[in-house]
Design a protein around this nucleic acid. Structure first.
Lengths: 135, 135
DNA sequence: CTGCATCCTGGGCGATACTG
DNA sequence: CAGTATCGCCCAGGATGCAG
């Protein structure tokens, strides 16, 4: 008995359920994921937790470790523990992790170069809110 | 009385609270935001809701309208209503909205070209889960 | 067909406090 | 200093039903 083929709509949809774009978005859906990866890159591929947290204002200790654990599971980050007192830990981008720096750099660079557009968006939202308040 | 200056750490942090990268991430933090914008672009800059929903399997009617409203508030999308029965509506990227297509294209293209890396990530997570189950 | 209101659940994320 | 555990909020986002 044959399996019914998927409707064309699904096979040809540019954003099929598990297409690469969606997978990439899911990978980087966490609030801090991309920034942590990118910061590790900026610091030469390796940094210590305190350093990391200071570089990312607003990042709580909990979210930092949690995100780093996720990144470890993905194989993008590895952790080295030195058994001394006080303990010293270093996080490092794996080779796989370094591959993902490129798209992030592209994105961030674009944002920096087009800050004016972001300003425009903020202004639009502000005036929209004004209208909303005036009603 | 002077206002105490911010610690250097904050002024020089690559990811200061409101830097362009963070603003860009916030803009596109919604699950469907980027895909809707990109789909509008793919369809020549304008499409109807049904069409849009069919192009994005999994997108509920509610989230579609909600995201589109947000995009309208940002000034990235505009809506045209034709008063007929049954009603016809068209969503269109504004000029501002079109400016944001470029970074999305970069990102999505990168994802498509590096699907192998995404596969590797999935495999890593799978084996990590195996270890977890074996314990 | 489009779109809005309502209800509800999961989980992301933060604050706090405690261990080594 | 690094990491874990616990608590609780809030809201993104999905399901359903109704209206124009």
């Amino acid at each position: 008995m044959d399996i019914a083929p998927l409707p064309d709509v699904y096979r040809h949809a540019p954003f099929a359920q598990d297409c690469a774009p969606r997978r990439l978005l899911r990978l980087f859906s966490g609030k801090w994921t991309t920034m942590i990866v990118h910061t590790l890159h900026l610091t030469g591929g390796t940094s210590r937790p305190g350093q990391l947290q200071r570089a990312l204002p607003g990042l709580s200790k909990k979210m930092m470790t949690q995100t780093l654990r996720d990144l470890e599971r993905m194989g993008l980050v590895e952790r080295e523990i030195m058994q001394v007192m006080p303990p010293v830990v270093e996080y490092r981008l794996t080779q796989l992790g370094q591959r993902f720096v490129e798209p992030l750099e592209m994105l961030y660079r674009w944002g920096a170069q087009h800050a004016a557009l972001l300003d425009q968006v903020d202004r639009n939202m502000a005036t929209a809110d004004d209208v909303r308040n005036a009603s």
